[in-house]
Design a protein around this nucleic acid. Structure first.
Lengths: 340, 340
DNA sequence: TTGTATGCGTTATCAC
DNA sequence: GTGATAACGCATACAA
């Protein structure tokens, strides 16, 4: 079911008694065109535009100008605590522009990623911001080759024309684990993210670095891996840690959501936090401050992340030439709360 | 920066040695066209399509067919625990279609809503699913008048051609409060949602109904309002309830997120839950089962919500005529856990 | 069974 | 300053 009552530039032209060309000129006057319309004519056109409530058809505009005014965000999941914050930050940033945002969760499936990216190309999307674990350089190249600007959050294959905005995950992890050490802990475990993901790998690296720097021996039994997006695995991992003959006195959990789960496992197993067991998380999602004890964790400025990503992306879209790849590393800080 | 290397139907036609018309015919053959192409020709075209990896340009297609293959979801917020689940459910449902999903959070601002809706019309979006607190019948009418299908979740102005999918909020609230009554509670408070929102109003109504049915007098001091999306207000509301000379022995909180906050306020004020104080929530977001004590709450099947909304929407989009408004009420059930 | 011609709503080139 | 006209990539009525 489709009807069509929207006015076109032709309607405006007729009402104003001018040609469609002239209408187009006054509409696009602001955006770069040399001003060559008489005040009289402009007024007539503008009046007609207002009277008809005319707005250029985006589909036609897209066809003609090769710009869809569409942006996309591709993340592993859209129902997690973290990614919606990212989406929201991005949306805020493009609020007053003509751009709309397509949001897509890949469920961490490479096939989904590729299919979605193809559909974006086909749709002529102007730019995409993505956080992904599996994208190859060829995939990125296909995107930029088809004229879509891309900014990626987190680690990704290097590409000469793809921007990258990240936090220093390793350093942040190292800092918060070092805080544990400074509090006297020597037996520190970790519920790590999957080795196959950059956030899993990098944060674990930070954990290892911190222990090494403190002269604490690495013990394999204290390192257990869980899936960021499968709560059962986190719960299982923590239970395993706490069931050890000599359980750790502190645990670095690679995400806040998993940390909250771990917290509950600890409570269920009658550890008291932070007295018997210190727990720290990562990301500082709102939930971190909502639980008791409140979670000590690594704070990231997600709004800044979104703002930065959009800025890079729009610059890229607006540029006449390919901008060489840029990388920006955002700051973080430790939120000292009650859980450690 | 935009390049253009994508093949057009013209390229395919040339490679296959036929006209663009013929290409168009074989491409759209499946979708309704009468099959009037020789096997020989079809094979040649299909070969060329495959070789060039040709896919029709969506912008051109949109201009020609008046279908953008774009859907939109408009909700108050996209960073809350609830709405991303809705978005995810919708996305799952349209996964294998040609549709992409624009997601927008209005931050509960009517101006934002209107601006966004206008941009959707301008973009020729095929359909929109929305949950909103402020949309008027005129707004809906403008949408359908411009050929966009609309399905709304939750209460909204009635419109002859807008579908509605809801849960029975009042009944659900009544049930869970009745459960409190059955557990012996007579002094039951509520952290209610804003009177200006349907979910606030309806759930409070259910609370009142339950008390009335149980012959319990309504006490104004036990009813305090909070904003679903402002954690401070929930915290403040609960604190007020528990500071009463005679605090309630049970509290019905109008959303799980606010319930978790309330839980923590209770803990901070040294009430033990559920012994001193029973708390129940609403919606059954994942968080509800993650906290301790686990939250007793009203479970909604969000996947079904998404599935149903998409189904109604697509039917509407595919229909040649305007389908009279439909309403579907989804079931709910109480999740009995530990907090009450 | 296939091709020609036209138009969707816009911007851009060029002439007036 | 302003207006024909073409073109973007596609689908379709109509002709062949």
């Amino acid at each position: 079911m489709k009807s069509n009552k929207r006015p076109t530039s032709k309607d405006v032209a007729e009402l104003a008694g001018v040609s469609r060309t002239t209408v187009s000129y006054v509409i696009n006057e602001k955006s770069g065109g040399n001003i060559r319309i008489s005040d009289e004519t402009r007024r007539k056109v503008l009046d007609a535009v207002k009277k008809l409530n005319y707005q250029p058809d985006i589909a036609a505009l897209a066809l003609r100008t090769k710009r869809s005014n569409l942006l996309a965000l591709m993340v592993p999941h859209i129902e997690t605590p973290f990614h919606p914050l990212f989406a929201s930050a991005i949306q805020n940033e493009i609020e007053d522009s003509i751009f709309d945002l397509i949001v897509y969760g890949t469920r961490d499936d490479y096939q989904h990623e590729r299919t979605f990216l193809d559909s974006l190309i086909r749709r002529g999307v102007d730019g995409v911001i993505t956080q992904t674990f599996q994208l190859t350089e060829a995939d990125l190249d296909k995107l930029v080759g088809n004229g879509v600007a891309v900014v990626v959050h987190g680690e990704c294959p290097t590409h000469p024309y793809v921007d990258n905005v990240i936090f220093d995950e390793t350093q942040a992890a190292r800092e918060i684990v070092t805080y544990l050490v400074e509090n006297g802990h020597r037996r520190i475990g970790t519920v790590a993210g999957p080795e196959g993901t950059w956030c899993g790998r990098l944060r674990k690296e930070g954990y290892l670095n911190a222990l090494e720097a403190a002269g604490i021996a690495i013990e394999d039994e204290l390192i257990v891996e869980a899936d960021f997006f499968d709560r059962e695995t986190a719960s299982h991992a923590m239970r395993r840690l706490l069931s050890l003959p000599r359980p750790p006195t502190a645990v670095f959990v690679a995400s806040d959501e998993m940390a909250v789960i771990s917290l509950n496992v600890a409570v269920d197993m009658e550890f008291s936090v932070p007295e018997d067991l210190a727990i720290v998380g990562f990301n500082d999602i709102p939930l971190a401050a909502m639980v008791r004890p409140r979670l000590t964790t690594v704070h990231k400025d997600i709004d800044l992340l979104g703002k930065t990503a959009v800025k890079l992306l729009l610059e890229r879209i607006d540029s006449e030439v390919q901008i060489p790849a840029r990388q920006v590393v955002l700051g973080h800080r430790i939120m000292y709360r009650e859980s450690a």
